[in-house]
Design a protein around this nucleic acid. Structure first.
Lengths: 233, 233
DNA sequence: ATAATAGTGTCTCTTAGACAATATTTC
DNA sequence: GAAATATTGTCTAAGAGACACTATTAT
């Protein structure tokens, strides 16, 4: 940014945000996809996204798109920037730089297809990864998924997939689904309980129907887990 | 990106790359700064950067700027994207979205001030962090520094600060300087040697002058360190 | 020999993971 | 009581850090 700076000395770019909105179904991690109703890539599934507005920060744009496409309250979900994609031909129409964000929601909201979209649907990430997505969205998904899985190890992210009040089994299920693995319940409980500020006992407990009722917890102020949990394998 | 897409339906942005070029001096981690010769922020130190060109990928832009400002061979340094900064008023002149990259160099190259810069200098990161930098560059530095320090724990990044052939003491010094700490040499050697594909013995050794000669190593194919090294404290 | 630096060995303490045992509920 | 789920306890093995010890050089 050292050179002189007139409007016409640098090429104009469009800047978009593309969103990886993750949520948890009974047995899978799901991501929100929209079906494109217009060229290019008409009929293909894509990540929800939108142009950043003139006086809007990147994160505000991501929050706005999140609300528009899911109806979710952007302040109730965790949102973070993942990576920026800007290959010259990633959009055939014009030069678009896309800032990818990922969001973790514990509700499913009301997915809304946009004006030029024909559908919006929560999709098992395994299915989504197998599909031929529009643009470079398969790559974005790949990067975001790995980032999410890695961050579960050393951050308290997992709680964002849970209700405000949750049991250790529910929290453990987040890890098991995201990592496609099984974790030893006793060891899991011991480890997360040892992390200062991660979990706060509510004093309540819930009956699951068949067994001993589980204590419930709320998320504490901690954002990192130390020592980190380890992904098996 | 679902809406219709005419050039005039979305605001034009300028896209830049800003670079955190890190290198190691005898006792400090250093970052390359340039001194601005024009408004805004005239006279302030800033990160080297430049506009992304019309047919250039973000990473190519970063490589080009790196070469221009340091003379270094972009293929001989490690370069990775850090984060994108796009607050509406971060540049008072026009809407600029900047993609920050960080680079790790083992040579210092020949820093070159650009046409509108009055100086370019390697700067101890402690000094740089204390200065009032141009734009939001202090924040970019903060984010990049923490990212770099964190990645040293679980990646093989550190070797990029070393010559192609290096000793364990030299590698250890990277960590000690970057983390501002002291590491136990015997334990360090044992841990890094245990990581498969991290270090390859060359069979050579170098006399340091005063003591027993040290074996030298080359970087192996591994990119992650498991188990990770742990930052003391 | 002494100092300096490199590298190995050993010990202790913590933690991870396996799994046994106990607690509290429904059927 | 039997089955299901939650939670606590115990054991073993691996890893981390402290530090003693050995190796190889210069002076």
């Amino acid at each position: 940014m050292g050179e002189g700076l007139q409007i016409d000395e640098h090429p104009p770019f469009a800047v978009t945000v593309d969103l990886l909105v993750f949520t948890l179904s009974a047995s899978a991690l799901e991501v929100l996809l929209v079906k494109r109703g217009a060229a290019p890539h008409q009929g293909r599934w894509a990540l929800p996204g939108g142009f950043v507005r003139e006086r809007e920060s990147l994160e505000d744009a991501a929050r706005r798109v999140l609300h528009t496409k899911t109806g979710l309250d952007p302040d109730a979900v965790h949102l973070e920037q993942v990576q920026t994609f800007g290959a010259p031909k990633r959009d055939p129409r014009l030069r678009v730089v896309s800032v990818a964000y990922m969001a973790f929601a514990h509700e499913r909201g009301e997915p809304q297809a946009g004006p030029s979209e024909t559908a919006a649907a929560w999709t098992d990430v395994a299915d989504a990864s197998g599909r031929k997505l529009a643009f470079d969205h398969a790559r974005i998904l790949e990067v975001g998924l790995e980032r999410a899985r890695a961050k579960l190890e050393y951050s308290t992210l997992a709680v964002h997939f849970c209700e405000p009040e949750f049991t250790l089994a529910e929290l453990r299920r987040v890890y098991e689904v995201a990592w496609d693995t099984e974790l030893d319940a006793p060891n899991f409980a011991r480890k997360v309980s040892a992390v200062d500020g991660f979990l706060i006992e509510t004093g309540n407990s819930v009956k699951q129907g068949r067994g001993r009722p589980a204590k419930t917890y709320r998320a504490g102020p901690a954002t990192i887990i130390f020592p980190p949990l380890q992904r098996p394998e």
